[in-house]
């Protein structure tokens, strides 16, 4: 393996990708469809965190909110306003769906920052499914709401007639690249950050370099906290943008 520079460099061993290994929580068998794995554990913790914040945190229903309730209301207001502003007022019906995506991603990202944890959103399996869900939803909604008029999204009526077929091809390609970039952006960002931290941690084995390494890890960790939130935000806002295209396909 490329990263295993064993032996030659004073026994430095890098395994930056080992943190992404999926393994069964109990026993040592193969990973089947229903096997309870570390994926299950960390997704369950994500659910617990979401329920803690959004359900238990607001259980008092107080008019003057406590800490947890304020945060819950803040998240609610944040996503609600985003849906309303970006996707339009008629997209409010999709608010619970978008809220689900946002809460899952943001909590999975933050839980992934706990040392020794497993980052579910750094796996393409997860993000591709999330992106495909958005893609399929947007496409279906587009055709249901606008019928064949949804194809007008690809026919740029403001461009010169001669250019339109070429633009249509480009638009169609970009439309189908959307789920790819949508999913790879999220997983790639998280994977890159975690792998970089792991590589820095590998350098800490050399005593002289270790202070620098620790500093670098701290700095990267701070950046990762930022990235965790921004990527969840970006995923959500892009979902809203795609949804706007589906609801109002005219350019």
């Amino acid at each position: 393996m490329a990263t295993e520079a064993q032996g030659e460099e004073g026994g430095l061993v890098f395994h930056p990708m080992d943190q992404f290994i999926v393994k069964p929580l109990f026993g040592d068998g193969p990973v089947g469809l229903f096997t309870i794995t570390n994926v299950t554990l960390w997704m369950a913790l994500t659910v617990v965190a979401v329920v803690l914040l959004m359900v238990l945190g607001t259980s008092k229903r107080s008019t003057i909110p406590g800490r947890m309730q304020s945060v819950g209301e803040l998240a609610y207001g944040f996503i609600y306003k985003m849906v309303e502003d970006v996707a339009g007022k008629d997209a409010v019906g999709f608010f619970p769906y978008i809220m689900t995506l946002f809460m899952f991603i943001v909590f999975a990202n933050f839980l992934g920052l706990i040392p020794m944890s497993f980052t579910t959103t750094s796996h393409f399996a997860v993000t591709v499914l999330l992106a495909l869900l958005v893609f399929v939803t947007v496409t279906v909604v587009g055709f249901v709401k606008n019928g064949a008029g949804f194809l007008g999204l690809f026919w740029v009526s403001s461009a010169p007639l001669a250019l339109r077929p070429i633009l249509a091809v480009i638009e169609i390609i970009s439309y189908f690249v959307r789920p790819v970039s949508h999913s790879i952006r999220l997983a790639g960002n998280l994977m890159a950050g975690h792998a970089v931290i792991k590589v820095f941690a590998g350098f800490a084995a050399i005593a002289v370099v270790s202070p620098v390494s620790v500093l670098a890890i701290t700095a990267m960790y701070g950046l990762e906290v930022l990235v965790s939130f921004i990527q969840a935000y970006v995923f959500t806002i892009l979902t809203c943008v795609y949804l706007k295209d589906a609801l109002h396909p005219s350019h």
Binding site: S181, I184, R185, G188, A192, I230, V234, I237, L238, V241
Partner: peptide
């Protein structure tokens, strides 16, 4: 701004 950053960054991530 964030949408623009996301698009620019996506290609780097590629």
């Amino acid at each position: 701004l964030f949408i623009g950053i996301a698009f620019a960054e996506a290609l780097g991530i590629f």
